[in-house]
């Protein structure tokens, strides 16, 4: 087995086990940490697939910003394993079975799909230069629109999260 395959299997095992850790751990903070590990392993897969830019962006945005946000919220609510609610056994079983069935169905469907082989030493489409060229020529409109999306998300988050002000002075004079 070449280095490539060893790395692949390593990263795969890491990803799946940490994903299982996310859903199975009782402490929410442990779940967050497991999820961060999952993101790192996925970024590793990106590098293996010659998508260097995305690997770095994944780490920065997801593991760096989003997970930190989650941690903030969990800390804010002071959640820990004691107060963590649990669903009933039957419902959990139903959930697991549903997920399992979905897995099997998709697998069976895609088993006989026609695919092209992946080349190992392949193109450099994942390089920042090439990706940037595609982004700013072919997809420039979605790119600009996504900035508007961010703006609206920001405004929305602020408006929703604002505390109600109970001490407002009435506008009319006394």
């Amino acid at each position: 087995m070449g280095i490539y395959e060893i790395l692949f299997w390593l990263l795969t095992i890491m990803a799946i086990s940490s994903a299982l850790g996310v859903i199975l751990s009782r402490n929410p903070i442990s779940s967050v940490l497991f999820l961060i590990v999952t993101f790192f392993s996925i970024s590793g897969h990106y590098i293996l697939l010659n998508a260097q830019f995305l690997a770095v962006v994944n780490v920065i945005v997801y593991a760096g910003a989003i997970m930190v946000l989650f941690l903030f919220v969990i800390m804010l609510m002071n959640l820990n394993a004691d107060v963590e609610p649990q669903k009933g056994r039957l419902l959990q079983l139903a959930g697991v079975i549903a997920g399992g069935i979905l897995f099997l169905v998709v697998l069976a469907a895609l088993k006989s799909a026609t695919v092209l082989p992946l080349e190992k030493a392949s193109s450099d489409i994942g390089l920042i230069k090439n990706l940037g060229r595609t982004l700013f020529t072919q997809f420039v409109l979605p790119f600009e629109v996504s900035s508007v999306l961010f703006l609206s998300a920001m405004i929305g988050a602020i408006v929703i999260g604002k505390k109600e002000d109970t001490n407002t002075i009435p506008l009319k004079g006394k």
Binding site: K87, L91, A94, G95, A98, G99, I101, L102, V105, V106, A108, A109
Partner: peptide, 21 residues
Amino acid sequence: VGFYIFVMVLGMIALFAVGFF
């Protein structure tokens, strides 16, 4: 919400099964 998600998953399974097979 949990119930809704469950039903959504079931629907997804059904759509996949019908769509692929």
